[in-house]
Amino acid sequence: MSPGGEHLKDEGTRRQVILAGGIAGLVSRFCVAPLDVVKIRLQLQIHSLSDPSSHRDVVGPVYKGTVATMRAIIKEEGITGLWKGNIPAELMYVCYGGIQFTTYRTTTQALSHLPHRLPLPVESFIAGATGGGLATAITYPLDLLRTRFAAQGPDRVYTSLMASVREIARNEGAPGFFRGCTAAVGQIVPYMGLFFSTYESLRPSLAGLQDLPFGSGDAVAGMIASVFAKTGVFPLDLVRKRLQVQGPTRARYVHRNIPEYVGVFSTLASILRTQGPRGLYRGLTVSLFKAAPASAVTMWTYEKALRLLQEMEVAAGEN
């Protein structure tokens, strides 16, 4: 943080922010891809882990816990199974990071020109929600492709990224690329708002601390903010995943008994009715385990990349 009291959103040019955001998304995604695949598999699993009788007619694997799920995927699909869907996910995270941080910076700069400056947490909430919502909507087709590839077991549903795009376009039309988008935006707006407001509130007090994970208080602030925000909106994340695998290929994924869902609220009601409140939190543990390091890596990489880009520009100007 600069001596003038500038925050993350005020630092760097637009080009630097776009590049730093894209780099942060790329690095973060690759690091947490295996946990993301595990999370998706657990979110799509509808049978109860505590009731063996619910496993009798299940076609497909029964996953129990993060480590056991990783082992099962490696055993059945090889180590590369933990990176299924990584190509569309990397594309999504690069685009998402650039759009998110640029919108965040632009929105907060616009808010700074209001006659009466808003409190920092409120300002950060608005900017974070705006950036997250816009980035989610624009990159959503890549998110859907990521989920469908991660949901594939040993029997492949789609042979390649381009093949999946052609098949969805042919069989489901343009709306097929946006299944569950309402739940995604409904989730990301409060999530990013809570994340950035918490992050910006914690960052000043942690900025001077060293000898922390990843070497700075930025990472710790990102981890705390992510855990807090993720827990609050997790049911909508689960609903999004269930809706993303609807359509003509629904019964061909690793979990063959995924029910047919239509709409966010009817999906929530159906899960509550058939699986109880716990059904809305399948995969929460691995989600939190993934979200904390992912956000820490994202914010740490963003800050480091931004500073490096600034230093490179200064050095170029001096030559």
Results as ranks from 00 to 15, higher is better:
Leu19Gly: 04
Ala20Asp: 06
Ala20Ser: 14
Ile23His: 06
Leu26Ser: 10
Leu26Tyr: 11
Val27Phe: 10
Arg29Ser: 11
Arg29Thr: 07
Phe30Cys: 13
Ala33Val: 03
Pro34Arg: 11
Gln43Tyr: 05
Leu44Ile: 04
Gln45Asn: 11
Ile46Ala: 09
His47Arg: 12
His47Asp: 08
Ser48Asn: 13
Ser48Ala: 15
Leu49Ser: 14
Pro52Asp: 10
Ser53Pro: 01
Ser53Thr: 11
His55Asn: 15
Arg56Met: 15
Arg56Cys: 03
Asp57Gly: 12
Val58Ser: 09
Val59Lys: 14
Val59Tyr: 10
Pro61Phe: 12
Lys64Leu: 12
Gly65Trp: 02
Gly65Asn: 04
Val67Lys: 08
Ala68Asn: 15
Thr69Phe: 05
Thr69Glu: 04
Thr69Val: 03
Met70Asp: 08
Arg71Asp: 15
Ala72Glu: 15
Ala72Lys: 15
Ile74Ser: 04
Ile74Thr: 12
Glu76Arg: 11
Glu77His: 11
Glu77Asp: 15
Thr80His: 13
Trp83Cys: 12
Asn86Phe: 11
Pro88Ser: 05
Ala89Thr: 03
Ala89Trp: 05
Glu90Phe: 09
Met92Leu: 15
Met92Gly: 07
Tyr93Ala: 08
Tyr93Trp: 11
Val94Asp: 05
Tyr96Gly: 09
Gly97Cys: 10
Ile99Pro: 02
Ile99Gly: 08
Ile99Tyr: 01
Ile99Cys: 00
Arg105Ile: 00
Ala110Asp: 00
Leu111Ser: 05
Leu111Lys: 00
Ser112Pro: 00
Ser112Glu: 07
Pro115Arg: 14
Arg117Gly: 06
Arg117Lys: 11
Leu118Phe: 01
Leu120Thr: 01
Pro121Asp: 09
Ser124Asn: 12
Ile126Thr: 05
Thr130Val: 05
Gly131Cys: 04
Gly131Pro: 00
Gly132Met: 03
Ala137Val: 10
Ile138Val: 13
Pro141Met: 12
Thr147His: 10
Thr147Gln: 08
Thr147Tyr: 11
Arg148Thr: 00
Arg148Gln: 05
Ala151Thr: 03
Tyr158Cys: 03
Tyr158Asp: 01
Ser160Thr: 02
Ser160Arg: 08
Ser160Met: 07
Ser160Glu: 03
